[in-house]
Design a protein around this nucleic acid. Structure first.
Lengths: 209, 209
DNA sequence: ATAAATCTGTTGTTTTTACAACAAAAATAT
DNA sequence: ATATTTTTGTTGTAAAAACAACAGATTTAT
């Protein structure tokens, strides 16, 4: 459970403003849908406790995992700030979660500080998506993996690190099939590009591509 | 050449504010780089005339086309609003272009109206990227194509329409190989799902998936 | 600590994609 | 209007990915 003061979006926002802006606080149990594809929303959410995933499902119910939201992070803001746009994604509770709902328009009207924070949030989220697109647009699974691992390594400044995604999540994230990805991983290890055990990875040739 | 009054981002922004905010106005010739991967920027751009593409290049110089910017649209705002983030993309002039450069921090400080417009812009851009990710995350080229075509058809409310991308751009956009995509297109046509001639498409089975 | 559930790595088979090369069509320049 | 350049569609082949199925490892629940 994160305290309000530690939520990045609330930085510089006064307590009085907060009282006006927060619309509701709700609990959802593990596995339940917090938002569902096809609906619309004029509120966005802040995750107070627990963990949730943003996903897309096709007509057969196959889940495409888009990203993970952790404590203190915002979700569904793109839909809340775009007029009557139907959601193309769903939000699912990975654990029991607690969520703060905030009216998009009210937030803009009542707090300049919050507006600024929202811009920063959007900008960063945009970059995250940019990165995902970059990985996905590589032609082969091996290239997608290397693109992801290099990028992750760079962002944490180490050649040895733990990734936050398990195999099936990583496969979804990169838009590939899990088992095929596993076998590509072991090929990359045999070829000496990387070594790994579970979620712990090491880049063996940091300069090569 | 678009007039300032018609630029969506300037809606509700006074002329005085505009004078303060606009940092410079520059011309670039067809083919030149407007922004280059690896650099940083604290300004964002508005395209006044011409057309530009946002791309990513790999180490061999293969271009991955990310999206097209048309007159009146904003680009590079994610980087400008994220602190010292290195650009992972480049912007290239597709024709001779003219660009308005705006300091991100100045814009936020000097105009509340602009801040609101930036939020809307971000929200919509986010949705655009979401859509691209959705298409790309489909497993086969045929599914990616149908995902794109259905989505486009839905967004313009017709089952018969012209797409704004030529074949090689569409292939880049979907992250697949052009010629393979062409052959998938003709299979889809033979199978009766779609019909097309050039960039003119028709969805033959609007309800099916 | 043990059982149950989930996740991971591997393999063989089928399907799909990338790639290369080229002819036909279309767009652009002169 | 004609020539030149670019784009598109096609095909065959080699490479890669999806899929299915399963054993072993790991994690989670009790």
């Amino acid at each position: 459970m994160i305290e309000y003061e530690k939520i990045p979006l609330f930085k510089g926002v006064s307590e009085n403003e907060l009282k006006e802006i927060v619309q509701s606080k709700k609990k959802y149990s593990k596995g339940s849908y917090i938002l569902r594809e096809g609906e619309t929303t004029d509120k966005f959410g802040i995750l107070i406790s627990g963990e949730l995933s943003v996903i897309n499902e096709d007509y057969f119910g196959n889940r495409n995992y888009i990203n993970k939201i952790s404590e203190g992070s915002v979700f569904a803001e793109s839909f809340a700030f775009s007029e009557n746009s139907i959601m193309t994604i769903s939000a699912v509770a990975e654990t029991d979660v607690e969520i703060l709902w905030i009216s998009a328009q009210k937030a803009l009207r009542l707090s300049a500080a919050l507006a600024q924070n929202i811009i920063t949030d959007f900008a960063e989220k945009n970059l995250t998506m940019n990165r995902k697109i970059l990985h996905m647009s590589r032609r082969t699974t091996a290239q997608k993996l290397m693109s992801y691992l290099y990028s992750y390594s760079k962002s944490c400044g180490k050649t040895e690190f733990d990734i936050p995604l398990r195999r099936s999540r990583l496969a979804d994230y990169l838009g590939v099939e899990r088992s095929a990805m596993c076998s590509e991983l072991s090929k990359l290890q045999k070829a000496g590009f990387i070594s790994y055990k579970g979620s712990h990875f090491k880049i063996e040739k940091p300069d090569a591509e």
